[in-house]
C-alpha cells in the first residue's frame, strides 16, 4: 500500500486510546518510532506500558486512534494482521516458548509454517540464530531443560527467525534471576547495534540509559515524557518521573 508517511518512520501512533471495559488504560498517546531507533518505555506499574506495546501488534485492539506500521494503518479492519505481525517480533516477560517442541523446532516453526521456508533453509537459519544468541549447543533440548536466561535468548531467536523489521520487548528480563539478566541484555544490545528498530518496556534503567535512543515515560495511560536518556535521567521534567526515578535508582 503506498503511503505518504515519512519512509523513515517505523511505527507511528496517533491518539491511541484503550479501554478494558470501563477502565481507561491508555488516554491518547501519540508518538513516532523511527527506523533503527531503540525506544525504552518506562513507567510505574499499571501505567499502561504493556498495553501500549501490545497495541502495536494488535494483541490488544485499540479502542480509538491509529497505529501506522510502515505507513499502513493497522487499526483498519481490512488489514491483514497476520502479515503485519510477521514483521513485528515480540518477546514476552515469561518467554512463552512452545514446551512440546525442541529449541530448534521452536525457532523453525513459524518460518516453515508461515513463511513456507523449506525445512533445510529453516534449519540453517535457526542454527545461525541460535549461534547468534549463544545457544547452538541446546538445539535438540526441550525448553523445560533451559535456564530462564537461555529460554529468553531462544525466544529472541524465535522472533528473529521471522526476520521482523521491528522488535517489541515486554520486560524481557523481569522474570530472570539477577545473574541471567546480563546475557539477555547483551543479546538485545547486539540487536540494537545491528540497526533493529526496538521498543522495550523495561525496569532496567542502566540498560535503558546505555542502549536506548529515546525514553518514553508513561504515567496513568499518558505519555508524560519523551526525551533522550541523558535528558530524562539527569533532568526529568514532570514530578511523576522524578518520583519514579528516585524510587528506581
Amino acid at each position: 500500500m503506498p503511503s505518504n508517511e515519512n519512509y523513515n518512520v517505523a511505527v507511528k501512533v496517533n491518539d491511541l486510546h484503550k479501554y478494558f471495559g470501563e477502565l481507561q488504560v491508555l488516554k491518547g498517546i501519540s508518538n513516532e518510532i523511527n527506523k533503527g531507533e531503540v525506544v525504552a518505555i518506562i513507567g510505574p506499574s499499571g501505567s499502561g506500558k504493556s498495553t501500549f506495546l501490545r497495541c502495536m501488534n494488535l494483541l490488544e485492539v485499540p479502542t480509538k486512534g491509529n497505529i501506522y506500521v510502515d505507513g499502513v494503518d493497522i487499526t483498519q479492519p481490512k488489514v491483514d494482521i497476520m502479515k503485519i505481525r510477521q514483521n513485528i517480533g515480540m518477546v514476552f516477560q515469561h518467554f512463552h516458548l512452545f514446551p512440546h517442541m525442541t529449541v530448534l523446532e521452536n525457532v523453525m516453526y513459524a518460518p516453515i509454517k508461515v513463511k513456507k521456508l523449506s525445512k533445510v533453509e529453516a534449519k540453517q537459519q535457526a542454527s545461525a540464530l541460535l549461534a547468534r544468541v549463544g545457544l547452538e549447543s541446546k538445539a535438540q533440548v526441550y525448553p523445560s531443560r533451559l535456564s530462564g536466561g537461555q529460554k529468553q535468548r531462544v525466544a529472541i531467536a524465535r522472533s528473529l527467525a521471522m526476520q521482523p523489521e521491528i522488535m517489541l520487548f515486554d520486560e524481557p528480563t523481569s522474570a530472570l534471576d539477577p545473574e541471567m539478566v546480563k546475557e539477555v541484555l547483551d543479546v538485545m544490545k547486539g540487536l540494537a547495534d545491528s540497526g533493529m528498530t526496538m521498543a522495550i518496556v523495561t525496569h532496567e534503567m542502566g540498560f535503558a540509559k546505555e542502549v536506548a535512543d529515546r525514553i518514553l515515560f508513561l504515567d496513568e495511560g499518558k505519555l508524560a515524557e519523551d526525551a533522550t536518556p541523558d535528558d530524562f535521567f539527569s533532568n526529568p521534567q514532570c514530578d511523576r518521573a522524578k518520583q519514579f526515578l528516585e524510587k528506581m535508582l
Partner: peptide
C-alpha cells in the same frame, strides 16, 4: 499470544 505474534 506467542504464536500470534509470530504471524501464525
Amino acid at each position: 499470544e506467542a504464536a500470534k505474534s509470530l504471524g501464525v
